[in-house]
Amino acid sequence: MALTIHAGYVPGCIGRVAELHARYYHPLVGFGLPFEAQVARGLADFCERFDAQRDGLWFALQDGVVQGSIAIDGSHVEEDGAHLRWFITSDATRGSGIGQQLLATAMDFCAAQNYSRVYLWTFEGLAAARHLYQKHGFALVHQQAGTQWGGEVREQKFERRSPV
């Protein structure tokens, strides 16, 4: 069955998104339990305080199973900008264009909300994701060594600014 984009909470999504992140990042950079728990906790908190007037949450579904995700957290938009979070696709769908569709959906939401600044944190070495970010107008604005995700990486902040 084809992949579809679904807006809003899906039962089991928190665990599935945490699993997708853990299964991708553990072999890649060694992130383990602290990272998976941080993803699950953060997404659970976001879902509990979700406000459809300011936040966005989308899933790529195939046969009812979450194969990708992305979120826009607008809770601190006035101070920091909108925060793009939990962007991931499954190994089975990576390269299919679903990541592009998820990111375009999130950026369309930001435009509709008149969010002039959107940012995300990632780390060096994720070439495909960086390509998508740059394609959608994001630019690298800051780098630093960090361990917030359970392993030492070169953290990167990307930001997209657009006139309102």
Rank of each mutant, 00 (worst) to 15 (best):
F35M: 02
H142M: 03
G150L: 10
F87G: 05
L102T: 04
A18L: 04
R94Q: 05
A112C: 03
N114V: 04
F46D: 06
A128K: 07
W121K: 11
A22P: 09
R41T: 12
G12D: 01
P34H: 01
Y133L: 03
G64L: 00
V10N: 03
Y9F: 15
G137C: 07
G151W: 09
R161G: 10
L57Y: 14
L33M: 04
A71M: 03
I70S: 00
Q53F: 11
K135A: 06
Q62P: 02
H131F: 03
Y115V: 00
I72P: 01
L20D: 03
L28W: 07
L3N: 07
A112P: 10
Q148L: 06
G97H: 11
A92W: 10
G64N: 02
D55S: 10
I70D: 01
P34L: 00
R41M: 12
Q134W: 00
F87W: 10
L102R: 12
M107G: 03
P27G: 02
V118F: 11
F31C: 00
F109C: 01
F109W: 11
I5C: 01
A92Q: 10
A127S: 13
G32R: 03
Q53S: 14
L20H: 11
E36M: 12
Q134H: 10
V65L: 00
D51E: 13
R130N: 04
V65C: 02
E79W: 14
Q62L: 02
G74P: 09
V153K: 09
L84G: 08
T105L: 11
T122C: 07
G15R: 12
G15D: 08
S90Y: 13
E48P: 14
C13Q: 09
G74R: 01
I88D: 12
A112F: 07
T93K: 08
P27T: 02
V17W: 10
P11Q: 11
D108P: 00
G15V: 13
Q156C: 15
P34T: 02
H136R: 13
A129W: 02
W121I: 14
G15L: 06
S90K: 13
Q101W: 15
